[in-house]
Amino acid sequence: MGLLTILKKMKQKEREMRLLMLGLDNAGKTTILKKFNGEDVSTISPTLGFNIKTLEHKGFKLNIWDVGGQKSLRSYWRNYFESTDGLVWVVDSADRLRLEDCRKELSSLLLEERLAGATLLVFANKQDLPGALSKEAIQEALALDDIKSHHWCIIGCSAVTGKNLLAGVDWLLDDIAARIFTTD
């Protein structure tokens, strides 16, 4: 076996990524995770603690951590930062009243050293609601254009209809893969 073949084999084995989903409570994190995995979303309760899901997608093994977003749980978020390849920040696009909270929480996360290498995907969720703000409006409200420290992308989606969930995750995986797996 040539050296290149061995290298390729190694690469295949290690195509594993750790994704961390955070966002305010009620944003739709758990619903996104379950919908993405093809599970029933009607029985989801507000998350006490966290859920982990391991799934295969596009030849990657994804370890997805979905941590509860209630105020009382946010101080625990930092316990999940280690080795995160991708951060998925989920926003309830119809929750105008808490957009400022949402911006603050995100900007303090981005200062975290342990998340420094992570790619950021922002899901502007609940686009199916008539009162949802557009992804452009969310981008502005969260001051995403000021982010220089991370690769980021915002995608409008709906966990209920499933719209754009795949597009978001695919972008995230491509970005991470380009960073951590050497390409030929």
Binding site: A94, R96, L97, L99, P130, G131, A132, L133, S134, A137
Partner: peptide
């Protein structure tokens, strides 16, 4: 409308 809201989408308020 709530005043914080940009007026583009309609929320029932």
């Amino acid at each position: 409308k709530v005043d914080v809201a940009p007026a583009e989408s309609v929320q029932c308020c």
